[in-house]
């Protein structure tokens, strides 16, 4: 139990509304160990964001539970930090880059120097040391998302949760940001739970890929990605093994879309 950082147990989420209830998540269970980089991939509209919000304590699951270090999550825990897809709405435009990164640290009981060090270190890690006095809206989309990542890193979480963080940036920026995530993971040993709809991205980044079915969602496959930890946009993506894994995940997602996969025990 102790070795599992994050445990999701029989999570179910039903949205109640006046027009009837919609079952978004049927039954999701998985575990994540400390130091892992796990990607969650699934067809669009399969409840990825709902799952993430339940894990992060922003949304209450209908049944089932989420355990962080063995403790049930009922509100956002201090050991998690989120990176949202909508960087433009997640950063506060009235604060500078430094102000944004520093804000969540202000209630942590740190001294000014400690905060300063954490912020400098996080900005350096994402390559934005020179832009600390800029405002988010003065930066490009990719750089804004780096600020959001720096804010999460400075918060010193046990797990970094990323919700389709690169869906809104262009392809080249995206490749750079993917490598940044890999670097944070390998060099700093940060545990990352990364949600995406991009199959290539999930295989390139992940050590494990969890394929979700279409809604109502369950875990269709939990796949080990046996690629070397040092990954490179050109060589890794050219490996035959990468193509095999990619094709496999692609087929799984296609099956999920067509609703062909059958939920075990049902």
């Amino acid at each position: 139990m102790a070795e599992n950082l994050l445990t999701v147990k029989n999570l179910k989420k039903v949205y109640e509304s006046s027009t009837g209830s919609v079952e978004a998540i049927a039954d999701i269970s998985f575990e994540m160990k400390a130091g892992e980089l796990v990607c969650i991939v699934g067809p669009s509209g399969c409840g990825k964001t709902t799952l993430l919000k339940c894990i992060a304590g922003l949304l209450k699951p209908t049944s089932g539970e989420v355990l962080m270090d063995g403790v049930k999550v009922t509100a956002p825990p201090a050991s998690m930090a989120l990176v949202f897809q909508e960087y433009g709405r997640s950063l506060y435009p009235w604060l500078t880059v430094r102000g944004n990164v520093e804000l969540p640290l202000k209630h942590k009981g740190l001294t000014k120097e400690q905060r300063q060090t954490l912020v400098d270190d996080a900005l350096e890690a994402v390559g934005l040391s020179h832009a600390d006095k800029s405002y988010p809206w003065q930066l490009s989309g990719g750089m804004q998302q780096r600020v959001a990542i720096a804010r999460a890193v400075a918060y010193e979480p046990e797990v970094l949760i990323m919700d389709e963080p690169f869906a809104a940036v262009d392809a080249q920026t995206r490749a750079d940001l993917e490598d940044l995530v890999r670097k944070l993971h390998t060099e700093r040993g940060i545990s990352i739970l990364f949600v995406t709809h991009d199959i290539d991205e999930s295989v390139y980044l992940g050590e494990r890929v969890i394929v979700l079915s279409s809604s109502p969602t369950w875990v269709q496959e939990d796949l080990e990605i046996d690629l070397a930890p040092e990954r490179d946009q050109i060589t890794t993506r050219a490996l035959p093994r990468f193509t095999e894994l990619r094709t496999h995940v692609y087929e799984q997602v296609q099956r999920a879309k067509r609703g062909e996969a059958v939920r075990p025990g049902k």
Binding site: P76, L82, L103, Y155
Partner: peptide, 18 residues
């Protein structure tokens, strides 16, 4: 107040006065 900004505040456990 923007919903994503509010969620950000919640997830980073900002205090009431923050």
């Amino acid at each position: 107040t923007d919903s994503v900004m509010k969620e950000t505040a919640r997830s980073f456990r900002l205090t009431r006065s923050q």
